[in-house]
Design a binder for these strands. Structure first.
Lengths: 256, 256
DNA sequence: CCTTATCGAGCGAGCGTTCGGTAGATATTG
DNA sequence: CAATATCTACCGAACGCTCGCTCGATAAGG
């Protein structure tokens, strides 16, 4: 357990964690994962053909859905955009709903994979761990903006089964924040009267970034600036009074 | 301009503003406003008939849309739910899109009406004003939950014109927060280095309450508790260090 | 008996999905 | 290696259905 002075000193310098770029998956990798998970419903066998086609389909579907919504996207739109015929598309999914489930499940799985694998040196200190969770979540959504926008916009208005999936994924994300904050309280890094509501409030602040991406782009707000601000708001809500004073603007330092 | 000690003392007691119940409109009043605004497209002339019918239509439309989305709600569904025929419905709107615009415009207008009319004694102090804005917004959405849920869920996925309307409404709300925070900085109530991003972060925290209403109901979180927590998070982000320490749990005291 | 408010069958358009057909790659055979 | 057979990946017309919306008929009140 560190005392306030030690923590203040620790916070004064921006923590540096390894660049996420390494472990942030490419769209091609996501599609490969989807292809593997849906071998039984995808009738095209040769990966050299299936993979680029599936990627083209998914990217087009996400793109079309992100203007107008998934329901509003017709398979004729998708057919035109991908250059494939209506019948041809059905070699890659057995219903429009399955197409949607493919994407949602992959996004939910990605969040879990990334957030549950922090670098070892990050988890030593709850403050650093919390900041890493916030920063990493933001960078992940930034790297796969269209995918997360899609998942957010379409998770509502769903058949109960898919809706449950979205709710579970959200609860899991919140649990990451809950766990580290609880650990911080127990270890004395966070104030003991930190509100149990705080973890729930972090998620909407992270969603704001990619849902309203256009707004922040228009205003010239960088991801670094947004990340720093969310970290600051959250830490001011859970750090003891003195710790908060030492808060320096903080994000991961650019590497390379 | 107050000094820190004065402000701390002021904050220690929960501010009390008049109950919003008085000025919070009923659904019937909203419908009356909509009826007046759409006289030209509504062909039914006698208000004694038009008003209850319109209310029935709007409430059913919001209800049906809030499970499944506006697009998924068919006019046959609406016909069944209201007990009116397809043709009969078209005496109250000239297209499905108009029906949607009626509701969105009314909600946007309501937000503007309520938030731009704070009680006189609230506006004297930026801290109280800011807390009033947060608390009032939450109570407004609580009183008209279905309407705000509808507006939030359907504001995306829109023709550009309606989308612009939603964006403008959101910007207006943010501007209320911006103005009072700026005033607080100038008057010395808020720290001079308060992030210009803070106003933008308040909105998602308020939306969270009605968008995820079921989650907080399940957890037994009351509106008072949620309001207090959001106020605390926001004030910790903009109050000078000392002021934050004096923060007592705060909401409008219930008036019996 | 005209006006007002409502009805409900029905229109054309567009939806998700299916399925018979086929070109080209691949495997099998002599 | 040429000829043949098989398979893979895809096409696109067509099907059954639901959609938003219209319009002539109709009922009720003054």
């Amino acid at each position: 357990m560190t005392n306030p002075t030690q923590r203040a000193a620790q916070l004064a310098s921006a923590p540096i964690w390894p660049p996420m770029t390494d472990q942030m998956p490419t769209v091609a990798q996501l599609c490969q994962s989807i292809l593997a998970r849906h071998q039984d419903t995808i009738s095209v066998r040769k990966p050299s053909i299936a993979l680029p086609r599936l990627q083209r389909i998914l990217e087009a579907a996400i793109d079309l859905s992100n203007k107008g919504g998934f329901q509003a996207m017709s398979l004729r739109d998708l057919s035109r955009e991908t250059g494939m015929s209506a019948g041809g598309l059905y070699a890659y999914f057995d219903s429009k709903t399955t197409l949607l489930k493919m994407i949602l499940a992959e996004v939910a799985d990605l969040v879990q994979r990334i957030l549950s694998n922090p670098p070892a040196d990050v988890t030593r200190d709850p403050v650093t761990h919390l900041r890493w969770l916030i920063d990493t979540h933001l960078r992940m959504t930034e790297a796969l903006l269209a995918w997360f926008t899609f998942a957010f916009m379409e998770a509502k208005n769903f058949p109960p089964a898919e809706r449950r999936m979205a709710v579970d994924s959200e609860m899991l994300t919140e649990s990451f924040f809950s766990a580290v904050i609880l650990r911080g309280i127990e270890g004395g890094a966070f104030r003991p009267d930190t509100s149990p509501l705080l973890p729930a409030l972090i998620k909407p602040l992270l969603q704001e970034w990619y849902v309203k991406r256009a707004k922040y782009r228009r205003r010239g707000i960088t991801l670094d600036a947004y990340s720093a601000e969310v970290q600051q708001v959250v830490l001011r809500a859970c750090l003891p009074e003195r710790g908060g004073a030492a808060l320096a603007p903080m994000t991961r330092a650019p590497i390379g």
